[in-house]
Design a protein around this nucleic acid. Sequence first.
DNA 1: GCTATATATCGTAATATTACGATATAAGGT
DNA 2: ACCTTATATCGTAATATTACGATATATAGC
Lengths: 108, 108
Amino acid sequence: MGLTKTEEFTKAQNEMAVLAKALGHPARIAILQFLIKTKSCVCGDIVEELPLSQSTVSQHLKELKNAGLIKGDIEGPSVCYCIDEKTWSKAKAQLDKLFDSYKEPGCC
Amino acid sequence: MGLTKTEEFTKAQNEMAVLAKALGHPARIAILQFLIKTKSCVCGDIVEELPLSQSTVSQHLKELKNAGLIKGDIEGPSVCYCIDEKTWSKAKAQLDKLFDSYKEPGCC
DNA sequence: GCTATATATCGTAATATTACGATATAAGGT
DNA sequence: ACCTTATATCGTAATATTACGATATATAGC
């Protein structure tokens, strides 16, 4: 056991879970905020900004990339990361939909 | 190792990460959608709705409760779960803020 | 108090995540 | 080709998550 039963859920549910999971770590929130703030999408400056080692930051960047939230362009010897607009707006839309589907205060 | 360095990040970053992490599993997305759909916030019917065992569902409910997204009222022999309005709108606001802070398409 | 039903918790096993140092890879400059 | 710099990957260790069956707990009804 210990393996998420993805096949048992809908595509939409799995997609949303993947996106939310990628946001489910303070370091990754911090990375995204930093990428948004410094529009120039400075690359390895993230390592200096975060209280984590270079390899750990690289791992978090990889996960954000896997989820599709960011993309990385090679730029000389370094890599330039930035928000992937398409997935970003998709994530926003999906989460908005979930949050907005709750209207009335239920029963308890 | 293997322990998230929560102290190194801001309160807001950690809070958002906790909320997102709670949403980071398809079963928990399914549970929330079900709770919203059946306004009567039927309790253990969730177990019948999901392709998971009773104990596993109970574990997921516990995590959603820990994150504050839902609350459970004892109602006779069973428990009535429903969305916790306060945390729900807080989560919505925090995520909205993150998503909306991205405007221009960066560089790459 | 006993019984049935509904949830929660415990114990356990498998897999995943987080983190780091060390090492590998890739690109630019000399 | 060599060196430097920037990132990525590997190996490893600790902790967390996911899942289930079995057992405990709690409440209503008898």
